[in-house]
Amino acid sequence: MSDPTASAAGVTGTLEGHAGSPPTTAEPGREKPRSLGRDAWEDLRHNWVFWIASVLILILIVMAIAPGVFTSASPTASDLDVSRQGPGPGAPFGYDLQGRDVLARTIYGARASILVGIFATAFATIVGSFMGIVAGYYGGWTDTIVSRLTDVFFAIPIFLGAILVLTSFPSDENTSQVAAYTKVAVALAIFGWTSTARIMRSSVIQVKQADFVQAARALGASNSAIIRKHVLPNSLTPVIVVATISLGGYIGAEAGLSYLGIGLQPPVISWGIAISDAQTYLRVSPHMMMFPIAFLSITVLAFIMLGDAVREALDPKLR
């Protein structure tokens, strides 16, 4: 009998083209119950990209929580005698303009970047998912309104939008550190949720048509139960991938905003601020800029790699 997947197989007529896979799953088996998440994990486990990205991210998180582990130098102790001194014994990354240890400042700067990245991603994912589910699940007028709203926000570039928000509501010395992080994160998320919403919407529309959702409706399940048990778990995959990749993007954006002087403000330590401070001396003291930039690039890269690895593991088409 024709396999239902076969009709989608297409031009190459691979009715049994992926002959390996359907029969494998057909054998109920010997092993422990394997959920799809477990299968994905099995896949990730054998992916070196995933491990490199994870190790890098783990180091960064430890850096953000306990920067003291990586350096004994103080990021704020300044000694003008060593201003802009290059790398040397006792200071492998050298000193900045005010004679502060670049290594220490780079390590302490991870916290701001990671926190802003996580906050922004969390806000964008929650808002975007909610909007996407509402639009996709209820359809009709609700969908029209939510989708147009999404388009309006989507039309404004994230970075430009964040600049507008932050210049309208500037931080000053009285703003607490956490409030400052939150403000930058919210400024980014206000215009960043739209891509999540769009992805969630299309994924919900797809899942909504599956027979198991119809079956639940036929049993008399409420909309909230259907969304919670059937729609959300099955439409989350692409959102997770986007969230992971965009986390790197938000970290980069935070650095950009701080560089422009409208994101985080000194005395907060951040890679963006460090890069901004160093730009005037790029030609004479490149080390001041090189190290924060290297850390920033590696962080963004690590999250993008993780996102790619997760997508590969979760993509049922490759399975």
Binding site: P4, P33, S35, L36, A210, F212, A216, A218, K229
Partner: peptide, 27 residues
């Protein structure tokens, strides 16, 4: 009640068989 055509799309891939068959009792 209904039994669907496509045995692949009629069961939620993220639920165990126990949860799928037990869902009517939850509702």
């Amino acid at each position: 009640q209904i039994v669907f055509q496509d045995p692949y799309s009629s069961l939620n891939p993220r639920m165990t068989v126990g949860d799928i068959v037990g869902e009517p009792f939850d509702i």
